[in-house]
Design a protein around this nucleic acid. Sequence first.
DNA 1: CTCGTCTGCGACAGAAGTGTCTCAGACGAT
DNA 2: ATCGTCTGAGACACTTCTGTCGCAGACGAG
Lengths: 220, 220
Amino acid sequence: MSVGREQLMAAAIQHLNEDPTASMAQLAEAAGISRATLHRHFSGREELMVALGHRALERWDAVQRAAGVQSAVASAEPAELRGALGALLSGLIEVADDYGFGLTDHAMAVNPELLRHSDELEEREIALFTAAQRAGLLRADLPARWLSGTVFGLLVAVREGLRRGDIARRDVPRLLLETFLYGAAAGPRATTSPETAAPPGTSGAPPQPPATNTERQEPL
Amino acid sequence: MSVGREQLMAAAIQHLNEDPTASMAQLAEAAGISRATLHRHFSGREELMVALGHRALERWDAVQRAAGVQSAVASAEPAELRGALGALLSGLIEVADDYGFGLTDHAMAVNPELLRHSDELEEREIALFTAAQRAGLLRADLPARWLSGTVFGLLVAVREGLRRGDIARRDVPRLLLETFLYGAAAGPRATTSPETAAPPGTSGAPPQPPATNTERQEPL
DNA sequence: CTCGTCTGCGACAGAAGTGTCTCAGACGAT
DNA sequence: ATCGTCTGAGACACTTCTGTCGCAGACGAG
């Protein structure tokens, strides 16, 4: 047994991230094994895809557990919800980066098993958003389900940005969090590190209208 | 000539939105023509895909022109930039809805022609974001390129939300605009229609801390 | 009516991927 | 050394999609 099932799936995912249309032969070669051996692990392409999907969903699940989503929702404490939200988003970045192709791959959106599994995780996430809305951390005038979709879309944007080299890996958590929470509009807001609010960009100081300077609540 | 080339592509796209893996035979059937006739219009699948891609990019281009992106950037006037941003996002919703599959289809991300075309449009959009940052409409502490990616990601979220029936079509412009500009965090902000700020959801009034009530600048 | 054009239909070969099978060899355990 | 297990290589049949071709029929223009 040269390569285990785990390393096999890891190699497959890594290769699928570069070419989502890779054939079984290419995936076998990427894993350094023969096509026959690949079929000894997974009876067919379908089974491999489902296995990869579940692997990704289990990591998503692990992120939710590590973030303490369940207990935060149960407690309804703003502090706990705040922490769970931050940990969740941070953790999801890595998952989206590792399993990038799965975010938008058609095979994942068709299989009933995977759909049920991901729906379950999504509902848990929506429950967190709903609780955060009740606690006054997140806006209540946007459906929690849409907020969940927003996170998904932003993770796609993160994946693309990293793939194309548009954004630096170390900036991703800040970009994701800032964009998701406060959006792109200019205006007074309290960030986690105010000194990074104005990077030394080429643009001079924006002729910003002197809006009433106030403190904004800092949910995360 | 029963069906023109335009209607043919429209039918193809509509069908591809439901099943991105549809074969040429399925696309021909969806358009109500034979497979041979489809090949008389497009020499192969590759050519069809490129044509569909360009069609989508031309609509994107049209949205940019209708929004007056170029002149707004040239003028650097906050009022013009504000209008261009709003018109751009509103227009992109329809494009993303009609050409949904193209947002994440692999064939689109591979063809050099389409890449050059979309890069050109994207650069124009980034120029608008940059100008809006200089005018104080958008945050300057987030890269304009990331803001462009954010819009892309949110459009993917819109597509998915509509496909799954999570969100109502009439709510989409508000959801997209509000989320992109102000994010998901709770806090004092001036929306375009304050009376819609608190929908009659099941959740009671959130125990929101009485943050200092202030007016926020309203970029769009 | 007749001609030219366009269309659908069926057939064809080729390409690519998939799943299965056999066989020989490597390798470790005993 | 031998046995059992696992592996890679190759061959095979099967499916699906693709691209091309010829032919017959519909249909409008003249």
